[in-house]
Design a protein around this nucleic acid. Sequence first.
DNA 1: CGGTGGATGTGAGCATCGATTACATCTCTA
DNA 2: TAGAGATGTAATCGATGCTCACATCCACCG
Lengths: 212, 212
Amino acid sequence: MPVRPAPSKARPPRPRVRKKAASAYHHGDLRQALVDAALAAIAEGGLEGLNLRDLARRLGVSPAAPYRHFADKDALVRAVAADIAHRYAAVLAQAAAEAPPDPLSQFRATGVAAVRFAVRHPAHFRVVYTPGLHDHRGDADPTRQALTAAQAAGVVAPIPVDAMMLTAQCAIYGLSRLIVDGQLPGGAVTPAQADAMTRAVTDVLGLGFLPR
Amino acid sequence: MPVRPAPSKARPPRPRVRKKAASAYHHGDLRQALVDAALAAIAEGGLEGLNLRDLARRLGVSPAAPYRHFADKDALVRAVAADIAHRYAAVLAQAAAEAPPDPLSQFRATGVAAVRFAVRHPAHFRVVYTPGLHDHRGDADPTRQALTAAQAAGVVAPIPVDAMMLTAQCAIYGLSRLIVDGQLPGGAVTPAQADAMTRAVTDVLGLGFLPR
DNA sequence: CGGTGGATGTGAGCATCGATTACATCTCTA
DNA sequence: TAGAGATGTAATCGATGCTCACATCCACCG
């Protein structure tokens, strides 16, 4: 019964009081509004809890309206996933840019940034790594190049770069996921705890990376 | 229409030709059959693709029948998750039992076993680590004790045990998830490739763990 | 040996959700 | 200013989770 008051409403001139959008169409910009609403809904209830009817309801629009902008639910999800992936990549890039250029600093900075993102936006983090929504092959190429150079200079142990990259990636991703999925002792993880754990992990990795 | 031939069947003496179960009730053991069928269905279509009606259909039973054995779908999922977690734990335990008792061998053996399980049963692996279905806090206590002992004997670097445990756990879990979620270059991962990657990761970790 | 009760399964049905279709309405532009 | 295309609506379908009243079957007890 919370669907709609009455199926036969005399239909007044349509109380569309949407915000901005000077040249507003019917809604303003339903497509972007849907993406934003989906972003919020995912943050609250996860990707599984997302449903188009609720989104439409929140935006004061009929359940069929979203289909004017997205072929189906999956298309919306993909758009939202792309949006999230973009933000995630930006966060990592900025962290790398602000850190010293040596490989170990880069590793640690991007690792800390990744884990922080996971702690702050768990549901969004999960979306970024949901199979089929995004490809992460070759994400860390800059770090790889820096690492190869450092190895040539003897600053880093002569282990295969592939192995080092893989290990670092696995450790950081594993830590993020363990936090996001609540599989670590102590239940919920505070940002400070997350930082400490990231530091511990990167320290141990660093020991393996240093020349002996 | 593949549900049932006709809604008004004269109902012959009920063609229940179920397998074993000498003192068979109506079905035999619908509860266990549901768990088994769910196991198979999850392996095929993942946890999201699981639905009770299909399970009932496969077992030749009405859609309401499962509710005689499980309060709701979630209860079934929890039972299946417990079953999977049990198998997973058994695999890890056996791998540890068959490996040499030193901490590094134990790490590698359980790591290899975990990654192999992930490669072989990706959907089941995902279920094991689905939030809310199972708790993994304190899973690796035996390894922790071995590690502490080894450290006292000077076989392992004097890094905080917590940090080493965490790093190893993160790396192995991260590798498993990256494989399961198809986020590694080259798409699908063969068991041989998985073993090689696990070896690479544990090697790098081992370097960090060895005393200098 | 027969009846009774609890466990098990059925059939019908409700609500929600994704998706499609025919139709209405609005905005822009020629 | 009138048509065309973009945008939104109403109605509806099929799948799914879940509930309820009823049927059926087995075990046990007098």
